[in-house]
Amino acid sequence: MTLTETSIKKMLPTQYKYRDLTVREITYVISQYKDLKPLMDAYVFNDGSSRDLMSLTGTVPVSYRGNTYNIPVCLWLLDTYPYNPPICFVKPTSAMMIKTGKHIDANGKIYLPYLHEWKHPQSDLIGLIQVMIVVFGEEPPVFSRPTTQPPFPAFQA
């Protein structure tokens, strides 16, 4: 086990049933996408209950109309990962707004056929991120907020 794998495994609670698989995938993903990092945090479910889960949080590079943007995302891994898909969100900064659409709801939750049809071992984090980058490149999930306009200038007669 590499040093990175060892430190990720230490972070990952024993409630995770497939720790070695999960650690290996995360290690690979963060070696490929260096702006994503593993974090433990409380995830709040729809029923209000919360659980400490590992997430991959950071940005993915998305090319849109000739420019590359670092789109902020958070991928939550359930303790049954990789047998259940991650729960994925875009995380707009205060300077951004969510663009809802087929793949994004008003909370920033990401919906993709890849997640819906998730099946280990054909589906994995690296494949998911690649799909996100393609889909977001066609339809960005966030846009910059318009800069604040100065008040309408008073017309002096």
């Binding site: 994503l36 990092k37 940005t59 670092n70 789109i71 960005p140 846009f143 910059s144 318009p146």
Partner: peptide, 14 residues
Amino acid sequence: LNGGAVPSAPPTYT
């Protein structure tokens, strides 16, 4: 682990 890139998004189109 690193600090990560600064998040960015395309400009709003009108």
